[in-house]
Write a protein that binds this DNA or RNA. Structure first.
Ligand SMILES: [Zn+2]
Ligand SMILES: [Zn+2]
Ligand SMILES: [Zn+2]
Ligand SMILES: [Zn+2]
Lengths: 166, 166
DNA sequence: ATGGTATTGATACTCGGTCTCATCGGTGAG
DNA sequence: CTCACCGATGAGACCGAGTATCAATACCAT
């Protein structure tokens, strides 16, 4: 059978699928699992790779399809890295929010919209635009990576990067 | 010779090139011209196409190289459209700012960072991140497109889209 | 069991972008 | 002015992300 890490996260995703009337097929469950067991950003290729490593072969197209599906259900969101690359992150489908991404390890956190809404409205008004959507992406170094780089520069070397499973 | 619309904008770009120690070659001048005569966003392919139409053939690579160059000089900036596509816009190299993009005609305007800086700092502090960069992109309908769609729905039809030269 | 719909995988294909490498051209020293 | 050199260019191979096609399956309901 499939490797089922089956976190609460995974369950959440699968339920979202079923609630929306899609079949929770083995492939989709696997994708849910893979996605849920990442707390950083990932690409379609990453999932494919990780899937293969767990001895499951899935068509490339299937991954993209699953990811599109999850995106439309808002349980994952597409991110544009500064490099120009496209990546995905899991996130809460309910509240509008943005992402804070560690450029060291890729970890990503949701951040509330806060005052931004008002600011955006103000900008729209000032320019006479009807704003339809906005995107805010923040890139920086997470506490873990900061600590790691500090201790590294202090002592000899180290590597406490990349957060594994959530 | 080359078609030289030669706006102030074009000149600005060329000067930026020379100031940075790059040759202002015919190709780069043409790219500067093309770029300057757009007020919306554009892709590398667009430029190539427009260049050809003006009976100048340029290698694809050359366009990408010129665009990279201009990007590094901050006279153009890369934009990530909601569709996931990459586009470029011209912009002021000096002050930090963001972009407001019309999803109707593609027109783009610089918007000042304003209060956003403070907001970003606050978020970084709250999450313990050292924020290195941020990106805000706003998508909406510009006054022209709004007016056009209104008059269109009122009378029979119309099309006042896409702004030509700046 | 049976038909109909949803899912999947293999494959071909498009397209943005990069890389290589041989050629070309402007600039500067002599 | 001439020559050498280094930056700029173009053609084309190449790569990787994402899409399109289409036939084979899996699932579901009757
Ligand atoms: Zn980190
Ligand atoms: Zn927001
Ligand atoms: Zn518009
Ligand atoms: Zn800003």
């Amino acid at each position: 059978m499939r490797p089922s890490i089956n976190t609460i996260q995974t369950k959440r995703i699968i339920e979202a699928l079923e609630r929306a009337g899609y079949q929770a097929t083995p492939n989709r469950r696997l994708v849910a699992d893979l996605v849920a067991s990442t707390n950083g950003h990932f690409t379609a290729a990453d999932l494919l790779e990780r899937g293969r490593r767990e001895q499951v072969k899935m068509g490339r197209a299937t991954i993209f399809r699953a990811l599109d599906l999850l995106t439309s259900l808002r349980v994952v969101e597409r991110l544009d890295l500064p490099s120009g690359a496209h990546a995905y992150v899991v996130c809460e489908p309910d509240k509008h929010h943005h992402h804070l991404v560690c450029s060291g390890c890729g970890r990503s956190e949701d951040v509330a919209d806060g005052e931004l809404g008002a600011l955006v409205d103000e900008i729209g008004r000032r320019h006479g635009y009807e704003i339809q959507s906005h995107r805010l992406e923040l890139f920086g170094t997470c506490p873990v990576c900061t600590a790691a780089s500090e201790s590294r520069s202090a002592t000899g070397d180290a590597s406490a990067e990349q957060g594994g499973p959530a």
